[in-house]
Simulated assay, not measured.
Amino acid sequence: MLGKVEDKVREGAGRAQEAYGRATDSYTDEAQGSARKYASQASYAVRDAADTVRSQVSSNPMGGLAIAAAVGVVFGYLLGRK
C-alpha cells in the first residue's frame, strides 16, 4: 500500500515539474516532468494489477495454479522450438 502512495506522490511531483516547464518555456523540465508522471502512473498500474492478481489467487488457488501452469507450458513451447 505504501508503494501506491509513493507512486501518487511522484505523479504529483511530475505534474508540478511539467507545469513549471510549461510556465518557464523549459522543454527539459516539461519533458522530465512528463516522463516522471507517466512512469509513476505505469508503476501504480503494475502494483494495482499485482494486488488484484494476489487477491484473486488467494481466493481461488486452484485457478491460479491452472493459469500458472498454462503460462509455463506456453513459455516452454515458445522457448523450446527452433
Rank of each mutant, 00 (worst) to 15 (best):
A35M: 09
G12A: 15
E30R: 09
A19C: 04
L65W: 01
E6M: 08
R81V: 11
Q17R: 09
F75Y: 14
I67P: 06
Q32G: 03
Q17D: 06
N60I: 00
V71K: 11
M62E: 13
K4F: 09
S43G: 01
G63K: 15
D25V: 04
R15N: 04
A69E: 12
A70N: 11
A68E: 04
S55N: 07
M62P: 01
E18Q: 08
V71C: 05
A16N: 03
V46Y: 07
F75I: 13
V57R: 06
Y27V: 13
A70R: 05
T24D: 10
N60Y: 02
F75E: 01
A70K: 07
T52K: 15
I67R: 11
G12N: 05
S55G: 00
G3F: 11
G14W: 00
A50S: 11
G12R: 10
A23E: 10
A66F: 03
V9T: 10
R10F: 01
E6A: 05
G76D: 08
R36S: 06
Q41R: 12
V57C: 05
K8P: 00
G21L: 02
G72M: 04
S59I: 06
Y27A: 14
E6I: 10
S40M: 01
T52M: 13
D51N: 07
A68R: 05
E6W: 05
Y38K: 10
A13V: 13
A45E: 12
S43R: 11
R10M: 10
A13D: 13
V9L: 08
A50P: 08
A23Y: 11
F75Q: 06
K82D: 09
V73I: 12
G12Y: 12
Q32Y: 06
P61Y: 11
G21S: 04
P61E: 04
V46Q: 11
R10S: 09
R15K: 14
V9Q: 07
G72T: 08
R47K: 15
L79G: 14
A45S: 08
E30M: 10
R22G: 06
T28L: 07
Y20F: 15
K82P: 00
D51M: 05
Q32S: 08
G64I: 08
Y44C: 01
Q56H: 02
K8E: 03
K37F: 02
K82W: 01
E30F: 02
L65Q: 09
A49Q: 05
K82N: 14
T24C: 01
A35S: 07
V9D: 06
L65E: 14
G80R: 02
M62K: 11
G14S: 04
P61M: 04
G33F: 06
A31P: 00
G72S: 08
V74H: 10
L2G: 14
